[in-house]
């Protein structure tokens, strides 16, 4: 599903975030990307959904080579992905339902299909009662639930989640992990970036550790 060969990323500010990173993630895998703040977790995910270009190396996602010179089909790539990222904000002038429906609308799905998928996704995150509410009326945790609902509304093959549980309390984190496990069981490939080491320890998935200072991958451990 994902292959990265010798990826390096140096920002114009000369901060080297990733250096010579090799990575392969199989279809259907659940992978944690873990590391302290500033270690490049978000950078790695942004490279995977095409928001950032690596400084060198090759990236292939779902058979699409993102590092091909002149690559212009980022939207093709994103259509098959669910993305949870600070880059993908909720629209405050739309209600809960409209926000979840947004990616489907943009992709041109039929209205009745959109309705079914949206209510399914909202039920999954437990927000079906709030579908008509304004985004502004939600708590941070509830907003995050909307973000998750939006990411999984179109049954993505690949889910890229950048700290999806960052603002959640323990109970909500458990619920969220439950949802992710369900998705994983149904065959979705999940890349989950987090700095919460206890989370990584509690769930038996492969972890890709990143270390601060651009030293890249230290080792690849197979779960706990």
């Amino acid at each position: 599903m994902i292959q990265m060969f010798s990826i390096s990323k140096t920002y114009p500010s000369r901060i080297t975030v990733l250096s010579d990173l090799h990575l392969e993630i199989q279809a259907g895998e659940f992978v944690f990307v873990a590391g302290p703040s500033g270690s490049g977790k978000s950078t790695l995910l942004r490279i995977l959904f095409g928001a950032e270009k690596p400084s060198s190396g090759e990236v292939i996602v779902n058979g699409i080579r993102l590092t091909r010179p002149g690559f212009k089909k980022i939207h093709r790539l994103r259509r098959t992905m669910g993305i949870i990222s600070p880059d993908f904000k909720l629209l405050e002038n739309r209600n809960v339902m409209e926000n979840v429906a947004f990616p489907l609308e943009v992709k041109g799905h039929a209205p009745n299909e959109i309705e079914g998928k949206v209510s399914g996704a909202l039920r999954r995150v437990g927000l079906q009662q709030r579908e008509k509410d304004s985004i502004l009326s939600l708590s941070a945790g509830e907003k995050q639930q909307v973000v998750v609902a939006r990411a999984l509304v179109d049954d993505p093959q690949l889910l890229l989640a950048d700290e999806p549980t960052g603002v959640l309390d323990n109970r909500m984190t458990e619920e969220m992990m439950e949802i992710f496990s369900e998705l994983h069981q149904k065959g979705t490939t999940i890349v989950f970036a987090t700095q919460d080491t206890s989370l990584v320890q509690r769930y038996p998935h492969r972890m890709i550790p990143l270390s601060a200072g651009g030293r890249g991958v230290v080792e690849q451990s197979e779960g706990v």
């Binding site: 959904f49 939207h75 994103r78 993305i83 993908f88 904000k89 990616p103 992709k107």
Partner: peptide, 9 residues
């Protein structure tokens, strides 16, 4: 931005 993140052409 949200459209671009959703994969709108």
């Amino acid at each position: 931005e949200a459209m671009q993140m959703s994969g709108a052409s």
